[in-house]
Structure formats: structure tokens, C-alpha cells
């Protein structure tokens, strides 16, 4: 298999205006992926399919990344009353959340894979639009519909974007991390954790 850096270099050579970022994976799986920009995602996918013979899209997954704050401590030397003192300061860095679609591409012709590419939305609320790769990989059709259903990502260029698991009148996106379940709690003999919280909320609502 070509290392992912090599694939990235080939993509950048052929599509110079596309932005492609390597996303490292520090887990034992060690599968780095390529975050591609939305404007060129279809062109990149077409190139991967036609030139690198990645002819099989086995899996499309949605991921919900919440807004997060990463705080880090830094040691700074300050001058206090004429003396140099080392002070620890916490810095907070804010990352805004986004929704992501992850495509796993394999090459049946070369018996290689996977090459993982990711597309990301601008934010989680309004601009949840991604380009659809269904015109390139037909097998992405149902899975993109599933992401549309469960995460609320709208895929532009998808031939038939409808809900697939939940019903049409349903308005929520259950796989989003801020999804609030309806209160259909049922008696549980030994509730604990989240279920206990749910039970308490339910009984408080029932009494009021």
C-alpha cells in the first residue's frame, strides 16, 4: 500500500488548489486519514477512484464533534516587585464543533486499503452541508442517507436524500450528542447512572 503521505502528495500534485490535511491517528490502529475540503471532495474522490484504483467505498460514517475547550498550562516568568517569578497560567483554546463524514475506500483491483477520507461541515447548527460522494461511489447512497437521518448532514448532489431509519415526520437527529430523548421511561428495577437520572426526571414530571 502506498503510504498515506504519498497519496496526499499525488493528490496535491494533481489538484493543486485543493486543501488536504493529514489527520494522524495515535490509537493502536494507527490509520491516518485525509481531511479534504468540501469544494474539491468530489474531484479528490474521482481521482482516488480512477487513478489510484480505490474502486470500493465500503463504509461511510458520521461523527459529531462538539464544541470543546482545551485548557493547557504554561509557565511564564513575570516581573513582580522587581523580582522574576515563575507563574503558571492556564490558557484556554476554543475549538468549534462540526459534523464529519468518514469514507473508507478500498481497492479490490489491487487488494489494498483502506484509504480514509473525511469531509467536515462548517459548524453543527446551520451550515451542515457536505458534498455527496454518491455520484462517485454508488455504495455511499444509503449510508449518506443514514448520516442525513441521524446527524442532520445535508449532502449536496445526493440523488435521493430522504430519511432512512426514522420516519419522515421525525424532526430530531438521534445520533447527535445533544439529542434529547422523549420521556418514554419505563420502570427499571435497578436504575443506575444515566438511567437513574432519567427515572428521576420522569417521576418528577409525572408528579407535576
Amino acid at each position: 500500500m502506498n503510504p498515506i503521505e504519498q497519496i496526499k502528495a499525488r493528490l496535491e500534485a494533481n489538484l493543486p488548489e485543493a486543501t488536504i490535511n493529514l489527520v494522524p491517528n495515535p490509537s493502536p490502529a494507527g490509520q491516518p486519514s485525509l481531511a479534504v475540503d468540501n469544494a474539491h471532495a468530489v474531484a479528490i474522490a474521482t481521482f482516488l477512484r480512477d487513478e489510484l484504483q480505490l474502486d470500493y467505498c465500503s463504509n461511510v460514517t458520521g461523527v459529531d464533534w462538539l464544541d470543546r475547550v482545551v485548557s493547557s498550562k504554561e509557565k511564564i516568568t513575570k516581573v513582580v516587585d522587581g523580582k522574576e517569578v515563575v507563574v503558571e497560567e492556564t490558557k484556554e483554546q476554543k475549538f468549534s464543533g462540526y459534523l464529519e463524514a468518514v469514507y473508507h475506500l478500498y481497492s479490490v483491483a489491487q487488494k489494498q486499503g483502506p484509504v480514509i477520507i473525511r469531509t467536515r461541515t462548517v459548524d453543527r447548527a446551520e451550515n451542515t452541508i457536505l458534498p455527496s460522494l454518491t455520484p462517485v461511489f454508488r455504495s455511499a447512497e444509503l449510508q449518506e442517507r443514514e448520516i442525513f437521518d441521524l446527524y442532520g448532514v445535508r449532502f449536496e448532489g445526493h440523488p435521493d436524500l430522504r430519511r432512512i431509519l426514522m420516519w419522515d415526520g421525525f424532526t430530531d437527529h438521534p445520533m447527535r450528542k445533544d439529542y434529547e430523548e422523549p420521556d418514554d421511561y419505563e420502570y427499571e428495577p435497578t436504575p443506575h447512572g444515566d438511567v437513574l437520572e432519567k427515572a428521576k426526571r420522569h417521576y418528577i414530571e409525572e408528579q407535576s
Binding site: 420516519w167 421525525f170 424532526t171 430530531d172 420521556d183 418514554d184
Partner: peptide, 11 residues
Amino acid sequence: ALGKHDLEPPA
């Protein structure tokens, strides 16, 4: 009925 968030009524 298939409601906006859940079945209506839930039971």
C-alpha cells in the same frame, strides 16, 4: 401516530 419526536401518545 408518528410524531415529531416520538410516537403520540407514547403509550
